[in-house]
Design a binder for these strands. Structure first.
Lengths: 208, 208, 208, 208
DNA sequence: CATGAATGAGCTTTCATTCAT
DNA sequence: CATGAATGAAAGCTCATTCAT
């Protein structure tokens, strides 16, 4: 007699299977059957717990955002060392995308759908970006220490970091074909991180 | 008697319809029927001209790459003015993505499929990147004019520009929800372009 | 703390919701979920109280018959005035169908199923037709008063009245499309009632 | 090697199977699979030829109306004999419903749906009622021959005939349970026809 | 060169119902 | 007495593709 799955675990299994499948195949490509099979459950349960495929996708998205938010919240760092702090933020972002590539494909999938699910989600909008607040603090301390320029916005620095990290991971397959390089080796990633660090610092430092 | 579509135009209609549809709905979401209807033709013609849905997608991808390549080739600029030249490259890239958003979603779609189509394409690999060559020339002239640092690679500068431009357009829907801003106004895009220009220049200038 | 529905009211809610839903959508179209939602209850309760969808439908049918029977029983009229009495019966039948259109669609639904539920119901067969008895009395008095012909059966007069009233209401949608008229206005119904009265009387009167 | 069905016959087979199935099980109860199996075809073909289940039902309805219309058109009778003519019309209508019971259940099904399909159909509205025109002619001749009253409308006589014939067939199952009689024997039907004839004539005759 | 006809497999979703406490 | 959880089967429909001329 197989162990009976509890109600909570059935739901959770479906949710994490859906995260995997949607991230791998996109929204249309991620069929209900692929998800239920991956969750070792049956199609019907998806409708029982999430109402529809779209409802499930929305919850997957909310989850992904929440995890990113939580990870940023855990990013405790000493803001009195602004240069070191910025480097740590860069390292964190690049590392997060490397370890959670599903976050990237989920966001791409949602952007393909022009953000229509995130618009329906009530919870997703609650997530502020802890990282922007951290960067803001780092910039202020850097200015106080006569290290940083005064006219740089935390939002722009945040977007610069995210854009370079995100793009590198998101487009690694077409870039590899295009550049004729393997971008996923440790060396390649380290080199990119180092270039990004240098770029970000030069954009904020008073005297590079 | 209605005008008979020529063979050439039927094929062309399908190709441009497919570009539209794949860009809008992705590979799985872009059904053969959506494409044929959008091209005012019938499913059967897609198989007649392109063999399969995958064959059609590959040709759409090749086309998109070729057009980008052609556009870069037309980017004649005076490389003796390196600072101005870099700014023009940045303006070109951002503007190209704005005017050809389908290029972005097609690349995202292909990356979701882990680049499996681009791998099958023979022509796609032929496209070098004229832009990298241009940047390389600009950097060399900048170094010769004692304006630029010596240890910056054209490939990295190119990726920096592309990443920031691409990410801004690609993720405009989720970013808008996340930041609570409209990123598609002319003012917002101009501000982003200005920040990128400043960042790129600071990363290459000897004395910012 | 919300008011707890009593057991009796839950059952009653389901029964009246089922009457509405079956009358509106038919037997197959009236899903268990539509009914439970309309009754502000849950699917499970239908099985708790009625055993099955079919059991619920049978009870709905029995109910409808019983209400019709009860209404006919309340039809107290002075049978010593046979002409006036017949007109009152006609008015009653037409009016009953107008006010209880669900009775018509329930019967149509049951006839579509070839009467298989009514056959299973034990109570439904108990209902005699009080109206036939009334008509019978009216005919006898009319004969005694030398007003009516002797060779007319109460059963036929009853069916004539019911057929014309039922058909007019039952087929009002297709008739409206077919005749290009609105049959549901008060004037249209009054005119039909007047024609029926005249027809019924002429069929029984000795000297019309 | 089985004989290959021609394109026309596949479509026709589906249409007549659908008429049978919808008439027997109603719209909801008449599943696409029941129809395709009955037509010895497959579900997919229904969508190929009719677009949707609803599209198929509309065509079935139009067909039923057209056949009724055609049958009435073929009803050539000598209008110079008005009494005999009316009896023939009554016989025709009752006989048509007996031989085409699917017409009745299709109309009931459509009325259950409040006529929403007939409203969408463009062709269905084209069918005038040849029978009304015939009755009109009979009434005029009857008046000219001093046989009929002047103040009777052909439309009402038509509805009277149709209502009594339709109701008798449509409700034969519940009526049988209710009256405790078998209404489908030849004797029973003949008796009903005879009563209807008498009733209709009495409603139009100057001196019954 | 072009196209109408056909199709098996898969899709998302809803069906009436039972399990288990 | 009442109800949350679960479910196999079937529903209507769309998928990319091939047949046959």
């Amino acid at each position: 007699m197989p162990a009976k799955a509890t109600s909570a675990s059935t739901r959770d299994n479906i949710l994490s299977a859906a995260t995997r499948v949607f991230a791998r195949y996109g929204y249309e490509g991620g069929s209900v059957e692929k998800i239920s099979r991956s969750a070792k459950s049956v199609d019907r349960m998806i409708y029982y717990y999430f109402g529809s495929k779209e409802g499930l996708f929305i919850e997957v998205l909310e989850n992904a955002y929440r995890r990113m938010n939580d990870a940023e919240l855990k990013l405790k760092l000493d803001t009195s060392q602004p240069i070191d702090g910025l480097n740590r933020v860069i390292g964190f972002v690049l590392s997060y995308y490397r370890k959670n590539p599903e976050f990237i494909t989920l966001l791409n999938t949602e952007n393909l759908q022009r953000g229509k699910h995130i618009a329906k989600s009530e919870r997703a909008r609650e997530y502020s970006s802890p990282a922007i607040a951290i960067i803001s603090e780092l910039l202020q301390n850097g200015i106080a220490q006569k290290l940083f320029r005064k006219d740089v916005s935390a939002r722009n620095v945040y977007l610069l970091i995210v854009a370079t990290a995100y793009f590198y991971m998101s487009n690694r397959f077409t870039l590899a074909a295009f550049l004729g390089e393997n971008l996923q080796t440790t060396d390649a990633i380290d080199a990119w991180q180092s270039f990004i660090s240098s770029t970000v610092l030069r954009s904020v430092l008073l005297k590079p």
